[in-house]
């Protein structure tokens, strides 16, 4: 009776120990493979986050430039203020226009004197009469600035129309190029990481060849054989995404401080994640971490599934 009980306890201890032993043995056996796999995936995810933040940065900068971009229409000295105010009222009803501000001759002179307060000789030679009155017009869309400018130029009483078209166009092209290169690099790194996972898991499967062969010969189902390998792939993915998230959140503190600081006087409370979509920086970081974790799990799962499929044929 006593021996029977002792045998039973021994059996239970054995089954528990077996599970833990197998887990530890696998970790030990595949340590180098696991580390290299996690390293490559982490690198991929850091680059993914890095490119996303660059794209968001350029989009936000572009939006800021668009908001700052304005047309200034200068009027002839003999064009009455009443007519300018009528034109202002008309422009304010135009759907394309965000805002219109009137700068009178006196206000223009005040701005001029503020800017040139250290140049007394220059200030002496200039009076309010010399400076033209103007309207400062901001458009809702950058693309409408050209048409609005042409329309204003053709109006009576308008002396000159100015806006910094070249700078904005160049930045827009630059932003587009950054986005395209970023997306292309992301795809390349994703495919590389996917390939690495497949190769790593195939090596793992190969090292377990006899065990898997025996499992199949004694009637293991596909699910039984592949499930631990799928979990392993997802584990690699999620650990890599987690490590990458920590690195990126730290990097983003510097990046966001740069955006909020002197850089174009950026408003740190609204990042543009897509054209027309604004989020707070904390939400952006959360969004990035979620993207990374989802990518990690999916990449690990799909990579493992592809790797294991070949070995499941009966």
């Amino acid at each position: 009776m006593k021996t029977e009980k002792s045998n039973q306890i021994k059996l239970e201890e054995h089954i528990m120990a077996n599970t833990i032993k197998n887990l530890m043995a696998n970790v030990k056996r595949e340590k180098l493979l696991s580390i290299s796999n996690i390293f490559v995936m982490t690198l991929t995810f850091v680059l993914l986050g890095f490119f996303i933040s660059i794209i968001v940065g350029t989009q936000t900068t572009l939006k800021r430039l668009e908001q700052q971009a304005q047309i200034t229409a200068f009027f002839k000295d003999d064009f009455p203020e009443k007519n300018i105010m009528e034109l202002k009222a008309r422009l304010e009803t135009d759907e394309r226009i965000l805002s219109v501000a009137y700068v009178s001759k006196d206000q223009a002179f005040k701005i001029f004197t503020d800017i040139n307060k250290d140049e007394p000789v220059l200030l002496e030679s200039i009076s309010a009469d010399i400076l033209p009155a103007s309207l400062e017009i901001r458009a809702k869309k950058l693309s409408d600035l050209g048409n609005i400018s042409s329309e204003l130029s053709s109006l009576d009483g308008v002396e000159e129309v100015k806006y910094f078209r070249d700078v904005i166009d160049k930045f827009k092209t630059f932003s587009g190029v950054i986005t395209i290169i970023g997306v292309a690099l992301l795809i390349i790194f994703f495919l590389t990481s996917y390939a690495v996972i497949i190769v790593t898991l195939r090596t793992t499967i190969h090292s377990k060849g006899t065990e898997l062969e025996i499992m199949k010969l004694v009637g293991a189902s596909d699910t039984y054989v592949k499930t631990p390998l799928l979990y392993q792939g997802m584990f690699f993915g999620i650990v890599s995404a987690f490590v990458a998230s920590i690195i990126l959140v730290l990097y983003l503190q510097v990046f966001l401080a740069f955006m909020a600081g002197g850089f174009l006087g950026m408003d740190n409370n609204a990042l543009t994640i897509f054209p027309g979509v604004f989020v707070r920086p904390i939400l952006f970081q959360l969004f990035l971490v979620i993207i990374l974790l989802i990518s990690g799990v999916s990449l690990g799962y799909l990579g493992s599934l592809t790797a294991v499929k070949k070995y499941l044929k009966y």
Binding site: L11, E12, I15, I214, M215, V218, G219, A220, S221
Partner: peptide, 15 residues
């Protein structure tokens, strides 16, 4: 036991 583990046999059955 591996022959039984692959069919998810309960521990009691294996024992």
């Amino acid at each position: 036991a591996i022959a039984l583990e692959v069919v998810d046999a309960p521990e009691e059955t294996i024992k």
